[in-house]
């Protein structure tokens, strides 16, 4: 059990199933001990020890397929799909911008439809197929939209780019890339503070007109 914990990926939560009782005993013994000394009790509160104990019991099992790989995970009900992707699965391509559904940096596809992963609870995505920016390329071969963003310089700082590309692919699949105006309207959920919009529109138009499968 200890070995399992040691091999956990950085930033990932250890599985709570088998060792939950053991963790609880370890941590509750710790709590009893530190309860006697106010200084350490404050420190325990700062380290959210009580929350960690509660979390062991409040986690729920979910299953989802991410970029073609099946995952069985244990998540808190309040964990968003965005945080699960980034922190449990180490898929950090999907970005956290505003975390309130206003910027679109967190856009992923759930069962083929683009959504804001920051406003999606992981427990509600259970049983679904997720595609992130990491799932677009085929090995070393970039997706046509990724190639087009490179060619047209569809970014400066790059932070919004994964969300822009996921949205751009959906925009064409939905049939909403028939004119510059339509592309602008249907890409309005993705904000770019560098202002790369004209180049993003050019990239989408080229992929659309190229007629390649997206």
């Amino acid at each position: 059990m200890e070995d399992e914990r040691d091999h956990a990926l950085p930033g990932s939560e250890p599985e709570a199933k088998d060792n939950s009782r053991r963790n609880f005993l370890k941590q509750s013994t710790l709590l009893t001990a530190i309860a006697l000394t106010p200084g350490t009790a404050v420190k325990a509160a700062e380290m959210h020890v009580d929350e960690k104990i509660a979390a062991v019991f409040e986690k729920m099992p979910i299953k989802m397929e991410v970029n073609g790989v099946a995952h069985s995970l244990s998540v808190e009900p309040r964990a968003t799909l965005l945080d699960i992707l980034r922190e449990q699965l180490d898929l950090t391509g999907t970005k956290k911008g505003c975390d309130h559904g206003q910027c679109g940096a967190c856009t992923v596809h759930v069962d083929g439809h683009r959504v804001n992963s920051c406003l999606t609870l992981g427990v509600m995505a259970s049983g679904k197929k997720i595609t992130t920016i990491e799932g677009l390329a085929k090995g070393d071969e970039l997706h046509p939209m990724q190639e087009a963003f490179l060619k047209h310089d569809g970014f400066q700082c790059g932070y919004c780019t994964p969300g822009q590309i996921m949205s751009a692919v959906a925009c064409i699949r939905e049939g909403h890339a028939n004119s510059e105006m339509e592309i602008r309207e249907y890409m309005s959920g993705n904000i770019c503070r560098c202002g790369a919009y004209p180049n993003i529109v050019n990239a989408i138009q080229e992929v659309k007109e190229g007629g390649q499968a997206v």
Binding site: G104, T107, V115, N116, S188
Partner: peptide, 9 residues
């Protein structure tokens, strides 16, 4: 209303 992503949800 909203954005295409939000309307999908």
């Amino acid at each position: 209303g909203a954005s295409p992503q939000l309307r999908n949800m």
